[in-house]
């Protein structure tokens, strides 16, 4: 005799679904801000999704097609701007490439970009963010027609920007990033305007886009961080980085023809990154301190004397307040 369970009564099903949904909603409502951040980080590593997002870099507004897939535990991403220069950013695990049209100005930087190859094992420590940010659930709202919770990250020092993260209540995926300066002026904002989860059997279809680009720039990453202090050619250190920033990558690369190699280190607090480059200074740069702003990113550079009396060019790049970037640049010191 075969036992055939009878289908549940519709009312029973409804009650059960409401109970489960209510329970999950209650869990979501009860999450602390830190738990939302951890859930958001996990969702990035586990879920596949796609959508259209708007990105304001403090200067211009761009619309992007964004596809995020997890394939055999590895994160794959395709990011394509829908206005401006025609480009496509592809990430497959640690392998990153940038597809460009032949007349794109980034093509002339091909050698420099491909010479990169940053070494890293960085894993953001979300548990430590509370040491440098006041983190709190700051309300609820709707982004891309989905219910979202807002987590505010207010820096304890004015050495970095304030951030609001809008996290999808159902999936914990980040739907909106809002970075503002201390006068509440937007530094960078992006948010999904359309969003959908992607089922496993649709992943390949979602990535099956033909390429019409003529140039591909490959950027490779290594698995381990090479402590730059151990490099005989690198005899400098940073006196200061903002609290909570840790070494997240190092690389040596040829950045310009006719110049020796540049040593590059990257620091991150888990949210934003800052790069420090040290290289021989061209004659034309001596005695001049320079600053540039591109969207939300600040670049500063100045020259200092190394322990052998040779002029070195220090350049710092980051999405941080200018005074912070300058202070990091001033903190480069050569070891005797």
């Amino acid at each position: 005799m075969t036992f055939r369970p009878s289908p549940p009564h519709p009312i029973t099903t409804l009650v059960l679904c409401c109970t489960v949904f209510g329970y999950c909603s209650a869990i979501a409502e009860e999450r602390s801000a830190e738990e939302w951040l951890r859930a958001m980080n996990a969702a990035q590593q586990e879920l596949s999704y796609a959508g259209t997002l708007s990105y304001f870099n403090g200067d211009e507004l761009t619309t992007l097609d964004y596809r995020h897939m997890v394939v055999h535990g590895e994160v794959h991403q395709h990011v394509t701007p829908l206005n401006g220069p025609s480009r496509k950013f592809i990430r497959e695990g640690l392998s990153v490439s940038l597809q460009l049209d032949s007349d794109d100005e980034l093509v002339q930087m091909q050698e420099k970009i491909e010479a990169g190859g940053i070494s890293t094992t960085f894993n953001p420590k979300f548990d430590k963010l509370g040491e440098t940010y006041n983190i709190a659930v700051d309300g609820y709202g709707r982004i891309a027609n989905r219910s979202a919770v807002c987590v505010s990250m207010t820096p304890k020092e004015q050495d970095r920007y304030r951030i609001h993260l809008w996290i999808d209540k159902q999936t914990s995926i980040l739907l909106r990033w809002d970075m503002r300066d201390h006068d509440n002026r937007p530094v960078s904002i992006w948010q999904f305007t359309e969003f959908e989860l992607i089922e496993e059997d649709l992943r390949q279809h979602s990535f099956a886009n033909g390429s019409n680009f003529s140039v591909t720039l490959d950027i490779k990453s290594k698995q381990s961080v090479e402590e730059h202090e151990d490099d005989e050619d690198v005899q400098w250190h940073l006196d200061w980085v903002p609290k909570g920033f840790e070494l997240s990558g190092t690389s040596n690369q040829e950045l310009s023809l006719g110049r020796d190699s540049s040593h590059n280190v990257m620091y991150s607090d888990g949210i934003v990154a800052v790069s420090v480059f040290v290289e021989p200074a061209p004659k034309s740069h001596e005695g001049v301190a320079m600053e540039s702003v591109s969207g939300s990113t600040v670049v500063v550079s100045h020259t200092i004397q190394d322990h052998r009396g040779q002029s070195k060019l220090v350049t710092v790049v980051g999405d941080l307040p200018k005074k912070t970037v300058w202070r990091i640049a001033r903190g480069v010191k050569f070891d005797p």
Binding site: G84, K112, M266, I271, V317
Partner: peptide, 24 residues
Amino acid sequence: KLVVHDANAFVSGSTPITIPQVVT
């Protein structure tokens, strides 16, 4: 350095929740 920073920041996971600025 802007472009190298953009690419490295994203691939290293140093900015895990931002979009790759290099495309824009």
